[in-house]
Design a binder for these strands. Structure first.
Length: 753
DNA sequence: CCATGACGCTTTTTT
DNA sequence: AGCGTCATGG
């Protein structure tokens, strides 16, 4: 191919074909190549395009070699997309470029300089499951009541520390907190020690160790500072403190860093992302410039204005004014339902209608707050035979059989991996149960060796009963033999052999449970996947770092996913169901983080709306099954935050269905009261004069509706039924004689004459 | 060591 | 409801 000559000829002619279709700020963002640059890019303003074009421009104009560019993304998907699009644009392989996620790039650096932080280059990257088991072990040793102090919580405390770049020695006393009676820091210390003994790291360590390498060895740091002439960072609003420190260190000197982000789309604060990174960019990097991309090419003006109206309720924004030249279109459809089932039915019917109008299903998406909410839609679509796909469901590599199989490989590659050995030591059953394991671990701890070595030592004694001793001896011999064979054959064949010889395959073949067959299938698929890699260890690295869902997005199916996983995607039609207080905004989120979390929930709503190109449907139900209990709900405050002029409101169900309503009304109101009592947030203000849904749902003190006593026989007014006379009352429930007949109504829906 | 039933918890998620 | 963990008893 003549790609190189072709590109350089373009350069000589000064054509830069790829710059032609950019708008003014985009062009500026691509061409401002010296000094720190923050690109504030609103939803749908072409930020990925700018990033890719910028990268291409740097290379084409020969400002840097491919190996001198560092491009950091947040997800593997984004990294792959960037590689593909850059390759397509400049027709050159991206192989020598450092394009990847924070974690994969750090892993690359860490493998090279592992010894600086007391690791060996073949260290294992633990998954969540391993992490939990490890922290549990540590806590058990320290006699912590695991019921009172859940290991998962401890893990998240550690993760938050790591997110901030804090090693155990950096944690200040006042940060320790009440967890595990103040033992959280010692647990953290022991956990880190155990990781080193296991020659293992967790995800947070990838960044943290890398920071420590830079701290300990200036030479290594200089090497990378010199190497990377240009740094590009995507989704900067999602970076945590450790990651921004990492960037700052590498960028120091050359100072050519360009970060792209949108503070309004920061939705990962709950796992340590720091919105302040983007807010403080100009302070963190001297002489920084900021360019705003504000022309939206994705959505109609109704959609964009709705989203802007919603997000304008947040404080502390950098502020952007998005605009679009795509005029008109449909208003946002807002609809209420009696229950979740009605909602799913109606949405599925609407989808069929759209389908008849030649809409592609793959251009339709249902975005929910929490994944359990997907089920209602899945069931409905299944019933109707509508094809759908769930994005971000359970992952292939998280299945038990796959993890077990990989655990075998991990022990072969790295015998210090106690967690992997522990996982499979009795799978298939070998009669090595909990008590045996305890003996082994006790020995390991007293000798300061890993589990594998402990077994080696213990089987040379008579501590164990003969049958056990023999099984363990056989197992170790097997592992030793596998290690000698690993390089003598094709690696996927080797893996198949291990699974076979270990008896793992046989275990599932003999299993009569209905899912055994599927598991065998998965194992076959695993071997097939391994074949695609150069080596077993590169496969395992892939599994630990990439873990991607191989979805073929090409099939014409409805997309169902959470709001979180929708970021970065776009669809013609977006359904946003389940907009009820407690669910969205999520109550737990609110309880934990108060006002800040409320704003993050609102950003989530903003992300949801801005995914749509043509149509948005927001809906909520009055009743919903939660843990199999029917609960009355009130609509999300976000519903009334969408500006009225961009909304098409469908008639409320509440007014049409008084009969069904009366059964629920007691719980309906106590629910609302409880909600505001529990929530740290005061009831929100309503827009006066707005009939639906705010006027009767989100009553506040300013409301002109009746708050206090009314008498039997008194004449009152109801929005829908007009004037009537109170016949009887029972708590909040009133029976009122209207001209159209006797209705049961909630007191709060009534105005005094 | 393993099977069984009681108990209890249940957001978002990528790496 | 549904799953996972834990304690109990065989």
């Amino acid at each position: 191919m003549n790609t190189a000559e072709e590109t350089s000829s373009k350069v000589r002619e000064g054509e830069y074909f790829y710059l032609k279709s950019l708008n003014k700020p985009q062009l500026e963002a691509v061409k401002s190549l010296s000094g720190p640059l923050l690109i504030l890019a609103g939803a749908g303003t072409g930020k990925t395009r700018v990033l890719i074009t910028r990268l291409a421009h740097i290379l084409v104009t020969k400002r840097a070699l491919p190996s001198e560019v560092l491009a950091v993304t947040f997800t593997n998907k984004a990294a792959m997309e960037m590689k593909e699009r850059v390759e397509k644009l400049i027709r050159r392989s991206t192989e020598t470029m450092w394009i990847g996620t924070f974690h994969s790039l750090c892993a690359r650096i860490l493998r090279k300089h592992a010894e600086i932080v007391s690791l060996k280059t073949n260290f294992t990257i633990l998954d969540t499951d391993d992490q939990t088991r490890l922290i549990k072990q540590v806590m058990e040793i320290k006699n912590i009541d695991l019921k009172r102090w859940p290991p998962r919580s401890m893990l998240s405390i550690i993760e938050r520390w790591k997110d901030r770049g804090l090693s155990p020695t950096d944690v200040r006393d006042k940060e320790i907190g009440k967890f595990a009676s103040g033992k959280s820091l010692t647990i953290y210390e022991s956990y880190q020690q155990r990781l080193i003994t296991l020659n293992a790291v967790d995800f947070g360590d990838l960044i943290l160790h890398c920071l420590n390498i830079f701290k300990k060895s200036k030479d290594v740091l200089f090497e990378y500072q010199r190497k990377f002439k240009f740094i590009l960072v995507d989704e900067y609003q999602d970076t945590n403190i450790a990651q921004s420190l990492w960037l700052k260190k590498i960028a120091f000197g050359q100072n050519n860093i360009c970060c792209v982000g949108d503070d309004d789309q920061s939705i990962y604060a709950w796992r340590g992302a720091e919105v302040d990174n983007i807010l403080n960019f100009e302070k963190d990097f001297s002489d920084a410039r900021t360019i705003r991309l504000e022309e939206n090419y994705r959505s109609t003006s109704h959609i964009l204005s709705s989203a802007s109206g919603l997000i304008s309720h947040n404080k502390g924004r950098l502020g952007k004014t998005l605009w679009t030249s795509i005029d008109g279109g449909e208003k946002i459809n807002i609809k209420s339902f009696w229950n979740g089932k009605d909602e799913a039915v109606s949405i599925s019917e609407e989808i069929v209608r759209l389908q008849k109008k030649k809409s592609r299903l793959s251009e339709i998406s249902i975005l929910v707050r929490a994944s359990f909410q997907m089920r209602e839609f899945e069931e409905r679509f299944m019933k109707m035979g509508l094809p759908y796909r769930v994005i971000g469901g359970p992952r292939f590599y998280e299945r038990m059989e796959i993890r077990d199989a990989i655990a075998y490989f991990r022990v072969i590659i790295q015998s210090q991996d106690d967690l992997a050995l522990e996982r499979i030591i009795n799978v298939p059953k070998r009669g090595v149960g909990k008590s045996t394991l305890q003996i082994l671990y006790k020995h390991a701890r007293s000798q300061g060796v890993c589990l594998y070595e402990a077994i080696q030592q213990i089987i040379s004694t008579d501590e164990l009963r003969p049958s056990l001793k023999n099984t363990l001896e056989d197992l170790l011999k097997q592992f030793e033999r596998w290690r000698t064979e690993i390089n003598s054959m094709e690696h996927s064949e080797f893996c198949a052999m291990v699974l076979d010889e270990s008896g793992y395959m046989e275990m599932w073949q003999k299993d009569k449970s209905p899912d055994a067959e599927g598991r065998l299938e998965n194992l076959k698929e695993l071997v097939g996947a391994i074949r695609e890699f150069d080596s077993l260890s590169s496969f395992i690295e892939h599994v630990s770092l990439v873990m991607e869902n191989t979805e073929n997005a090409k099939e014409d199916k409805i997309n169902i996913m959470t709001l979180h996983s929708a970021k970065g995607l776009e669809f013609d039609t977006v359904f946003l169901p389940c907009w009820e207080e407690g669910n969205f905004p999520n109550q737990r989120s609110l309880d934990e983080g108060g006002e800040k979390s409320l704003e993050e929930e609102r950003r989530l709503g903003y992300v949801g709306i801005t995914r749509a190109k043509k149509r948005v449907y927001v809906s909520f139900a009055v009743n919903r099954f939660i843990y199999n209990q029917l609960v009355s709900c009130i609509p999300s405050r976000f519903v009334s935050e969408i500006p009225e002029e961009h909304v098409k409101e469908e008639e409320s169900l509440l007014f049409d269905d008084q009969e069904g309503f009366s059964d629920q009304e007691d719980s309906f109101f106590s629910q609302e009261e409880n909600f505001y009592k529990k929530s740290k947030i005061a009831p929100i203000n309503i827009t006066p004069g707005r009939k639906f849904p705010s006027s009767y749902k989100h009553k506040s003190k300013e409301s002109d509706f009746v708050q206090e006593a009314v008498k039997i026989g008194e004449e009152v007014f109801h929005d829908k039924f007009g004037y009537g006379k109170i016949k009887s009352m029972q708590g909040n429930k009133l029976e009122i004689i209207f001209q159209t007949g006797i209705k049961k109504v909630l007191k709060s829906f009534i105005k005094k004459r």
